[in-house]
Every structure is written in structure tokens, then in C-alpha cells.
Design a protein around this nucleic acid. Sequence first.
DNA 1: CGCGCTCTTGATCAGGTTCAACATTAGTGG
DNA 2: CCACTAATGTTGAACCTGATCAAGAGCGCG
Lengths: 235, 235
Amino acid sequence: MEYKEPRQNQSCNHSDKACVSLVPIFNHLDTEQMNEVMETVESKAYDKGELVYQAGEPSNVLTIVNRGSLRIYRLSETGKEQLVRVLKPGDFTGELALFNETEHEHFAEAMQPTSICQIKREDLQSLLVKYPTISLKILQELSSRLDQSEQQVTRFTTESTEQRLALYLADLSVQADDHHIVKLPLAKKDLASYIGTTPETVSRKLLDLEEKQLIKRLSGSRIQLLDEDGLLFLD
Amino acid sequence: MEYKEPRQNQSCNHSDKACVSLVPIFNHLDTEQMNEVMETVESKAYDKGELVYQAGEPSNVLTIVNRGSLRIYRLSETGKEQLVRVLKPGDFTGELALFNETEHEHFAEAMQPTSICQIKREDLQSLLVKYPTISLKILQELSSRLDQSEQQVTRFTTESTEQRLALYLADLSVQADDHHIVKLPLAKKDLASYIGTTPETVSRKLLDLEEKQLIKRLSGSRIQLLDEDGLLFLD
DNA sequence: CGCGCTCTTGATCAGGTTCAACATTAGTGG
DNA sequence: CCACTAATGTTGAACCTGATCAAGAGCGCG
């Protein structure tokens, strides 16, 4: 994989920094406090394929996505890749290295032209001490992310591949339109990685689900959900 | 397993509450602050097999283990059980329901006579606001637990059952004695559940690992690790 | 238009589950 | 402390899900 240098620490303008106002962990602050936060953030921009950070690097910043998206993945002990999650504007990452003063365990790769804001550990810590409600927001976010991850583990240990795929589609249903059509937010191979299987099996299982009249595959990675309850409980 | 008297919802005495002083999230406080914390906690005791809480219940307390151990498990969408983790004295749980004001997703079951302390949401929130360093400790704990859980996911998607078992044993090696002997902290069926397989397969894979000269099975669920590096990289 | 990709479909194979029988351990009460 | 019972762990054999390898189809992009 080729690795390109990030665009050098582009001097940040106000609109780039405004991202913080969108972030759930900050959006309860008033304007004055928000300005104070903006003082401390630094913004950067990355092209598709560039890495914001890699596993093994130390870090002293919390990274917040402003525009675009970041693909967070891990390499296993034996070198295979696994998609952990995709960050959209308002999402943050880097908390492990930040709070535990350790190294990143992830890779964070821009999936498209992406701009981010970063807050240094010391700045964040003073903010947390000054405005403890921010901590509560982060605690909220982390505990819910932990719940998600544990649910994912449970699915791996207890459900078949077909069921995991079906549950994944059911999870997507919240973003479906009137016709119950969802667009897969991931390429098939990333989807396969996320639910712990191969692209071949994803193809086959989608076909199986279609034969069971639970979904209909449409062009452009779109899928129509015909029976959302049926997806939750395959035989 | 010496003590046996059930001390259900017993009014708390000072030594029971002293558990908070052992907890990483509080142990940086001074004596006076510690006493303030102790004012707010309530202690309870459970017998083996009793549930501290169940999935679906709302909750407004953070639960800290004082003595004994709690088995945290989930039921999957289709009703199968999965061991999430085991809490030892000083560990806490209940953060999801607490910070997100939602329901528990777990079951917490005493594995032996166990005493716990609980702090109410409002009390914890005032403590967090008053002593923001507590938040930092909790953030630390949650982010590292999240990391653990994501690592677990990655192992499921990328490693064989045998490798997952070997990695589990390697993780245990930190608690090994001079002779590299570890005692399995889980019953085989719980271990199987944790690493996502069946008790039968655990038996067989342990045998395989023994034949590969990587471990030696001893009586009383003890295992001698003969080649800890070899466990990390099976062929 | 043609070269990469990603995606699909097919055939084979292996790892792991399941079911069943047996062995061992732990827990209980005499 | 021993005997009995229930629960947990082990071993064997058949089966099945999903991975792998290989080849072809579709798609996006220069």
C-alpha cells in the first residue's frame, strides 16, 4: 500500500475549526466556551488513501472528523486486516492513545478528501477540568461504543455468518427511505471484513437472503429490505 | 468459598465501603475526599448465582466489586449466551445504563459470595464535576476496555479457533508463576463461550497445543506454558 | 475502449459443530 | 470422610458451514 504525506498542517481557517460545534461532545457549550475550544484545535486535511495515524505511533491528540470520512481498521496479531468502524463528520477517535498515553492500535485512513480537527492532550485535559460536562459526553460516547463492540463480539460467537449479515442489514434499516431501500455504506470487501467473512460469502448469503424473499438486490450497492423482522430471526 | 451467610441488601459498614479505596478510579484521592465518596456509596452482598442486574432493567447506579467476582454475560439476538468478562475486586460495571440513561444490555451474576458498592448517578455526577480527575480515570478505563473488546472482534474475524485459544493463554501468561503455570480463571464452558467456540473444541485444541509442545495440561484446570512466543504464532 | 478493480459463481476442502457416549470432577448429605 | 449424584469435561464420528482457489462477469476510470 502506498502512503502519501499528509498535506502539511494547513493553516486553519475558522470554517474548518467550526467542526467542533457539530460534535456531540461539545455542542452543549455556549458560544464563548465554543470559541475557547476553537482556540485550541488545529485542523488538517487529507486526500483519499492517506493515513491520519497508524498503529504503533504514540499520540497526544484527539481527532475529530470535520468533513469526509475515516476508515478505522486493525491488523490482527498475524497480520490480517479488520475494519473496526467508519468515522463520519462529528465522530472522534484516538481516545486510547490519548487517555492511556500509549500507542495507537488502529490505522485511520481517509476514504475521500477529509478534513479533521485535533485537540492536544493538555488542552483537552484543561477543558475537561474546566467544563466537566464534556467528560460526561465523552463517557456517554465511549460507553455506547463499548456496548456496540461487545454486541459485535456476541454476534460473532453466537450467530451464523448469514445471521450476522442479516443483522447488519437490519441495523441499516434506520437509514432506509420510504421504499425500504438502503445503500450499503461499505464496499463489499469492507463489509465482509466488518462482519468477519469473505466477499465471496457475502455475495452468496445476499443471494440466499434474496431467495428467502427477505431482501431484493438493486443496482449500485442498494438493497431493498422486504421483511425487516424476518432478518432478525432466520431459521 | 469459606463464607456462606447471605447478606442481602445489608446496611453497609465501613469496611464494606472501604472497597472504593481500592478502585483505580478513586485511589488518587486524598483521605478526606475518599471519605466523601464513601458517604455516597451503598454496599450490598450477593450469593453465588444471584443476579446483580439483568438486561432490560434501567439503572441509575455504577457498580463496583468489593469482594468476590461477577460474571458479565450477554444474550444474543437469538438467545444464546456469551461471556463478556469477569469482574474482580476494584472493577466496575453499569456504565452504559448509567451514562446513556438506557437499559442494561448485560447480565451480572455473582460467581461466589460477592459484595459490591454502588454509587447513584447524581452522586457520581457531582463527584465528577467536583473532582474531574475521576473522569479521566474512567475515560482511561473505558477506552482501554474498548480497545480490548475491539481486539477481541479482530481476533474473531482473522484468527482460527486454535489461535484464539493460544492468544488467550498467552494473555494469561502475565499471571503465571515461576514455573509458567497458570490457573484458568474460567470454567471450560465459559472459556469456550468467551473465545467463541464449544467446550468440545476447547478440549481438542488444548490437546493439539500440548502435542505441539506449547503447553502442558495439569490437574485442577492448571496449564503450564512451555513456549509463550510459540503461542503467539501458530503455523 | 481497454485495463484495474470489485463482484459473482462454481467446485473443492477443511475446520469446527453437533450428537452421543463415557470419564472425571465437584458438590451434597449421610 | 465417604458415597452418591449432578455437572462439567473428554473423546469419537458424521456432518455442515464457510474458506479457498480459480475463472468469468460487471463496473469505473483514465
